[in-house]
Nucleic acid binder design. Structure first.
Lengths: 343, 343
DNA sequence: CATGCTTCTGTGAGCGTTCACAGTAGAGAA
DNA sequence: TTCTCTACTGTGAACGCTCACAGAAGCATG
């Protein structure tokens, strides 16, 4: 009855074991592990075999201790959490980032800065160098956590154009203005002329840009912007419902409405339904996001697809580049009109 | 023009710096850091002050290198990702776990095992000891990744009762059967007698248990279970829609239906609406989950709330206990009936 | 006064890597 | 021959921490 293996975790092999097995030195194994420059074919092969045989996996702690890198990045969510957690796009983004990083063998640490205590803990953790960089999701303007990290020189890539942060912050965003332009042009092409809009929050770049696209296209079409056709929401379903009611009261002759998020559009559809308006016959409805919500309603939403899969992979690409020493960069990605039944 | 601080990351203070500042040795600082036993009040205070002054944060890599612990845990999502990512409960769970862990200063590493390549990478990463334990979300029976980790002796806590894994795996789950019982009893109390059911996937414990609760209560009430009132779905909205259509065809006199998830219930509502049935007048509908979807439909869903916040905190509690050497444990948490308009 | 116990402190070793450097061998040039 | 160059390899020193151990000081006990 000697010590058995089952149940307990066996001490894993080290670079020493591999070196001994392969009949070379630690240094040579290390070189093989890190790119294989200045290694003879024979040594290369011997080390590869030894690694396979021993099941060796590099000890990242030891490596990090000496390199100063952690080979991990944080995914930081600050401020108004609820909204994000209800938004399925958030999931797509999170998954995309995780998988893009996994391809580089870099783990993603999820960090949620809700309470003041969490905020402190997270800034301390990140500033201490426990992650090499941060993917930031925060629509909040003047986010104090983000500002502190920026000041500490931590590589940072935001999702969506950040407000109130210095110019040294990279970001990746969909072309909100162009998406809005596409949708409004589409509504015009359907012959609609009294087009309302439920905007997103106007203290966010996305909210502002989508409204700007709307106004731009109307102006180009020679249609005067009518203030009674503009109401603003906060991307939530409830605010869409309330917005639609206001619009119906202010502009009974409205024949289309561009809603700056699918979730709000859900609310708009509900309100229109209650008011006895048929969609799209009486009023055409255009959404934004192409979230699962878009196909969960009747009629299914015509909407603007944001390329979330590309957004996530670009965020990772830009962050890794920045960690590698490159300068901050801004990436704007094109959107796409998805035609369904509501417009 | 000497090297300036701004932009670059400054080398952080070490335990040496703190020791010098406090006028004590490394050992004493280390003791303060790890619980403060066998430390004189004077030393304690001096070290605390030095830590504050220098802004010292422990280097986790150096610590892990010697302790063998990583002080981090993985959140592992395997198999049918899409379903999870559409399910808002997943977000609540993920957030809950992240925050519960944060309170212990333990980072959460998100891992998604989609492709075969990711699966390999993740098992290697975890088996190598780069996390101390794993929170597992996987409804798939006989999950190979989970099985491998279990065999490797990695502390593991599943969300929901896992199928096909040995008994050494802990899990935390809502009391599915009791929740189903509550809902069916509620439908009976409304005077309904021809109660249909759209089950979850019957290769998962949740699906089986919810159906069992349904059958149990009907039996208690002296109502014979009618096979034509039972159809099974996969928790997706589409399967709910299809299920409702089958039920309407098979049992036109149905006056209530218990749907094993809110997402499916959304589909059921849509199908009933199309068929001209009024809810709850003609047919009462009961859901399960109390997801945001429940209040996003008209009429709002009467449903069973699963205590997701407690599930996540219990998962973390059980995992940390197991990492600390305790035995595997199973935790079943009570559900709650939420009355709204659909039943 | 020796002995033991408790409480506290400092020291050296070592965790598993990478990195800088020294060194070797072989080829080609002077 | 001698020198230089290239391609490769091994070695010791670090990285920042914890842990085991030795020891000191204080106090009670024999």
């Amino acid at each position: 009855m000697t010590m058995s293996n089952s149940g307990g975790r066996r001490k894993p092999p080290t670079i020493h074991d591999v070196a001994r097995e392969a009949g070379v030195s630690r240094g040579t194994v290390s070189r093989v592990l890190n790119g294989g420059h200045y290694v003879s074919p024979a040594a290369q092969e011997a080390v590869d075999a030894a690694i396979r045989k021993t099941g060796y996996v590099v000890n990242r702690h030891a490596r990090s201790l000496i390199t100063g890198r952690s080979d991990s990045v944080g995914f930081l969510l600050t401020e108004p959490q609820e909204r994000f957690f209800e938004d399925p796009n958030f999931n797509v983004l999170l998954r995309g980032c995780t998988q893009a990083l996994a391809a580089h063998d870099i783990p993603l640490l999820l960090m949620i800065a809700g309470t003041e205590d969490e905020r402190r803990r997270i800034t301390r953790y990140i500033s201490a160098g426990h992650v090499d960089g941060v993917l930031l999701v925060s629509s909040h303007s003047g986010d104090p956590v983000a500002e502190e990290l920026r000041a500490a020189g931590v590589p940072l890539v935001a999702c969506g154009k950040p407000i109130g942060l210095g110019s040294k912050v990279s970001y990746v965003a969909a072309d909100d203005r162009d998406g809005a332009r596409d949708m409004v042009r589409h509504l015009l092409s359907l012959g609609r002329r009294r087009i309302g809009v439920v905007t997103g929050p106007l203290d966010t770049p996305g909210g502002v840009e989508r409204l700007a696209g709307y106004e731009e296209v109307l102006a180009q079409a020679g249609i005067k912007v009518d203030e009674s056709l503009i109401v603003s929401g906060d991307y939530s379903r409830a605010s869409g419902e309330a917005g639609a009611e206001r619009l119906l009261a202010q502009a009974p002759d409205m024949d289309a409405v561009f809603v700056a998020s699918d979730l709000m559009a859900q609310g708009v559809l509900a309100a229109l339904h209650r008011a006895g308006k048929r969609v799209p016959d009486d009023i055409a409805v255009g959404g934004f996001d192409d979230s699962p919500a878009a196909t969960a309603v009747t009629p299914e939403l015509t909407t603007i697809r944001q390329p979330w899969d590309r957004i996530s992979s670009e965020m990772v690409r830009v962050l890794l580049a920045q960690i590698g020493g490159e300068d901050a960069a801004a990436v704007i990605l094109p959107t796409e009109l998805v035609r369904r039944d509501s417009a």
